[in-house]
Every structure is written in structure tokens, then in C-alpha cells.
């Protein structure tokens, strides 16, 4: 384990930022496009997801910058970095799922979205984003191990720097959970999307 700390933190925070940006963008997609929703009849899920293009663009810029950071530390990334965009996909899936639920709930109760986003932001402190998972506090350690976000952040980072997947089973379960969340989000969205327009 010999990742320079700045690199560790840079990757961790950019993955965390990807999750938060996906959630907020998708969650605000409906409210931000209320003008279009009220006046035209177009699929609402599309409007909710249009902001993702922006998020992905930022993400790509972040990946390019990541290479610059590697060069700065005179390190060569592990070939596993080629899988980096793919293994970070579950983060986007999870973000879209949570975002879609917040989007429809947010049209009825406007304040729910920012509150939920702030609370989710707190999860960063039980996810190894800026610190290592090997903590001495046993309670915190147990929470981090039980937290699926741990694996979603750790796996792309370890793969890019060291070329290893720390816990394949943990990553697999976390991915599964992300896909379930995505399904719940889409399902919930389609269930109540007819009621969305009149709330905007």
C-alpha cells in the first residue's frame, strides 16, 4: 500500500463527488425543467436524466486530470485504470436510483431533496474517501465494512493505483444493491410521474 495520500484523496473525493453530483442532478432534473414539463408532453424521465450528460462530462475531465496527478507524483497508473470508468458505473447507477426517487418526492415536498442530499453527504464520514479503511476504532471499522459505499469507492481506486480489487464479494454485493436501487428509482418514477406535472 504505497499510494501517495494526495492521490488517494483525489481519487476518493472525485468518486464521491460523482455520486453526489449524480444524485443532485437527477433529483433536480424535474424541478429545473418545470417549464418544459408544464408546457410540453415529453417523457419526464428523459428530462430527469438530461443533466447526467453534464455530470459525465465533468467526470471525464476528472479522469484526465487524474492522469495528470499520476504524472505529478511520477507514478505510472496500473493498467487496471482502464477498468476505472467501468467499475465506477455502479456509483452512477446508485446515484440515478436515489436521484429518481428524490426527484418525484421533491416535486411534492420541495425541501426533501436538499435535506436528503445533505444527509447523504454525511455518509462520506463513514466511507473511506479521505481516510483509509484500516481504522483502530472497532465500531467505526464495523460500520465502514458494512457500508456498501466503501466498496464502490475503494474498488476503482485500488484498481487504478494498485491493480487489485480489495473485496470482490463486497464489490459484487454493493453493485447488486446499486442495481436494485436503480430499479426502485425507475419503478417509483414511472409509478408517480403522472402526478408530477401538477406539483411543479
Amino acid at each position: 500500500m504505497s499510494i501517495p495520500y494526495p492521490l488517494f484523496v483525489y481519487i476518493g473525493t472525485s468518486l464521491w463527488a460523482l455520486l453526489m453530483a449524480t444524485i443532485t442532478t437527477v433529483a433536480n432534473g424535474l424541478i429545473g425543467n418545470s417549464d418544459l414539463i408544464i408546457r410540453t408532453n415529453i417523457p419526464k424521465i428523459g428530462l430527469s436524466l438530461t443533466g447526467l450528460a453534464n455530470v459525465l462530462y465533468n467526470y471525464i475531465v476528472g479522469v484526465v486530470l487524474l492522469l495528470v496527478v499520476f504524472a505529478f507524483f511520477r507514478l505510472s497508473p496500473h493498467p487496471g485504470i482502464l477498468l476505472y470508468p467501468i467499475v465506477s458505473l455502479p456509483i452512477i447507477a446508485l446515484g440515478v436510483g436515489v436521484g429518481l426517487v428524490l426527484a418525484v418526492v421533491g416535486t411534492v415536498a420541495r425541501d426533501v431533496t436538499p435535506i436528503a442530499v445533505s444527509i447523504l453527504g454525511l455518509l462520506m464520514y463513514v466511507t473511506p474517501v479521505v481516510f483509509n479503511a484500516d481504522l483502530s476504532n472497532p465500531v467505526l471499522r464495523r460500520i465502514i465494512i458494512a457500508n456498501p459505499l466503501t466498496y464502490l469507492v475503494d474498488t476503482p481506486r485500488s484498481l487504478a493505483t494498485l491493480g487489485v480489487i480489495p473485496s470482490p464479494i463486497g464489490y459484487f454485493l454493493a453493485t447488486l444493491l446499486s442495481l436494485v436501487m436503480l430499479w426502485i428509482g425507475i419503478h417509483a418514477f414511472y409509478l408517480v410521474q403522472d402526478k408530477v406535472a401538477e406539483r411543479l
Binding site: 418526492v105 411534492v108 415536498a109 417509483a188 408517480v192 402526478k195 406539483r199
Partner: peptide
Amino acid sequence: FGLTLKQSLRYGLRDMAKTF
């Protein structure tokens, strides 16, 4: 439509929970 924001918020959340 609901007459007051509070009322329509309450009904909206209730309906949404029911649908979910």
C-alpha cells in the same frame, strides 16, 4: 387541486406513499 400548499403537500405525499 388542493386549495392550500400544506393540504396538497400532505395529500401528495400520502398518495405517493400509497402508490409506492
